[in-house]
Design a protein around this nucleic acid. Structure first.
Lengths: 119, 119
DNA sequence: CATTCTTTGCAACTCCCAGTTGCGCAAATA
DNA sequence: TATTTGCGCAACTGGGAGTTGCAAAGAATG
């Protein structure tokens, strides 16, 4: 059971703060602190999200063991594009404008909906 | 999250009763029943023991998949800073809600601004 | 140096839910 | 028919997962 150390190690390797993790997991920063200090463990659902964020298998995250090498695609790094039918390397950082480029319709809908309240 | 089905499947494959599992895990028989019916999840410590008894990896038990191969650092989450000479963290892929979590104030401002046009 | 900002740990509290006990119900098995 | 095995559901309880609040050590910034 190397979860605590693994978490701290993997998190620092990604240059993430406890706060960064916490916000992505929708828990408080102190919760993450407890996990790393062995003062508690996350629930299963959160644990799965953690493994995704840290890009490791559950076995690596919890036990610190290296998983057997396989030849399948890591879904956390590649995303399936239904249009092309291919696995494509995902984008990196998404800034505000990248976001708008992809979700402009959502924003419009949001504005329209909220705007409706003012009439 | 296929834990419930996986547990039931793996257990029956080994011809074990819920009672058998429960006694090995030092929990009540009904606890195992809840897990299989999706009415709850075991704690992390118990989960690890469960994977051992069932002779499967945590990923197989929880996700129904083989352990991920990509237990490596995703270089796309780093950017090189020529000034500091260091690799610094940058944010990964954002989904809609992650975005809102960080830019909710911007969205509010945006809505307010656009809304002003209607008055 | 003084002053913020960032990152983290610890104490105290709340309350949710994992686990328990108890009961009932089908199927086997004798 | 009785008995055993295997399982699910309702009701309850206690521990701990998560929270807020406070404080400290470094790192920036001026």
């Amino acid at each position: 059971m190397k979860f605590a150390e693994q978490l701290k190690k993997l998190r620092s390797e990604l240059h993430l703060s406890q706060d960064d993790l916490a916000s992505q997991l929708f828990v408080s920063r102190q919760a993450v602190s407890k996990w790393e200090n062995g003062d508690g463990t996350p629930d299963l659902k959160t644990l799965v999200k953690l493994a995704e964020i840290l890009h490791v298998s559950l076995d690596t995250l919890v036990l610190g063991t290296k998983p057997a090498t396989g030849d399948h695609i890591d879904s956390s790094v590649f995303v399936y594009n239904p249009t092309t039918g291919l696995y494509e390397r995902r984008r990196g950082v998404m800034n505000f404008w990248n976001f708008l480029a992809q979700y402009w319709w959502t924003v419009i809908a949001l504005v329209a909906t909220i705007g409706a309240f003012f009439f």
